[in-house]
Amino acid sequence: SFDANEYLKNIHFLGDLFNAILYKKVLCVDYQSFKSDVMTTLEIHPHYLKQYNNRWFLIGNNPEFENFTNLALDRIVSFSEIDKKYQVSSIDFNEYFDDVIGVSISPESIVSKITLQATPDLAPYIMTKPLHGSQKKISNDSNGFRFSIEVIPNHELEKLILSFGEGLQVVEPDSFKNTIKQRLLSSLANY
């Protein structure tokens, strides 16, 4: 069996959204973000469906924004086809998401080399299940496993690193190390 969330809200939308992509249909989507009390209605030219962390996302163009919009299926209230000319994308989405963990890519994002240190106990897990395809070993000794990944820093990467707790440390760059440190301090303030 595969790890999947069979209880994910709106999983039944997948087939219709896939068909909208396949047949190049423009959609009017009613969307309820977790960050807003009001539902938003968006025009979306759907291009790609991506699963991350047992959650599905619809990636497409919204004519109001220059960059792609990603919508979590569990926050889509409803959608319908609208009669508008579909904006075709020439993007190879496998390549588009190659430098990222998750689905969030902000416009100013650039790929960064991030060096991490796993404790000796965690090292075998990280070596046999790399965090990202770009993972490269720097050293592996009694201090643990030091390695680098080349990715676009984002919220999903932060969550992944934090999920390893004290077993994983950001070594560099300092800016990303400080981001993780601030998140840990905020988390500690809850206790």
Rank of each mutant, 00 (worst) to 15 (best):
S1F: 09
S1L: 06
A4F: 09
E6V: 06
E6M: 08
L8V: 13
K9G: 00
N10P: 13
N10W: 10
G15H: 11
D16P: 05
D16T: 11
L17E: 01
F18M: 12
L22Y: 08
K24R: 15
K25I: 05
D30H: 09
S33Y: 09
S33F: 09
F34D: 14
F34P: 10
D37N: 13
T40D: 14
T41H: 03
L42R: 04
I44G: 01
P46T: 02
P46F: 00
H47N: 05
Y48E: 01
Y48D: 07
Y48M: 04
Y52T: 03
F57K: 03
G60T: 01
N62A: 05
E66V: 15
E66L: 12
N67V: 10
N67Y: 14
T69E: 08
N70R: 08
N70M: 11
N70H: 15
A72C: 10
L73Y: 13
V77S: 07
S80K: 13
S80P: 02
E81W: 03
I82H: 04
I82C: 05
I82Y: 05
F93G: 11
F93P: 02
N94F: 14
E95V: 10
F97Y: 14
F97T: 06
F97V: 06
D98Q: 14
D99I: 02
V100W: 02
I101A: 01
G102R: 04
G102M: 07
G102K: 07
S106E: 13
P107F: 14
S109W: 06
V111S: 08
I114T: 05
L116K: 01
Q117V: 06
Q117K: 15
P120C: 10
P120T: 11
A123V: 12
Y125I: 12
Y125H: 13
Q135T: 02
K136W: 03
K137E: 04
N140S: 09
D141G: 06
D141H: 09
G144W: 02
F145N: 00
R146G: 02
F147C: 00
I149G: 01
I152L: 12
S163A: 14
F164M: 05
E166F: 08
E166S: 15
G167E: 14
Q169P: 02
V170T: 06
V171F: 00
F176H: 10
K177E: 02
I180M: 06
I180A: 05
Q182W: 09
Q182A: 15
R183A: 07
L184E: 09
L185N: 13
N190G: 03
Y191H: 07
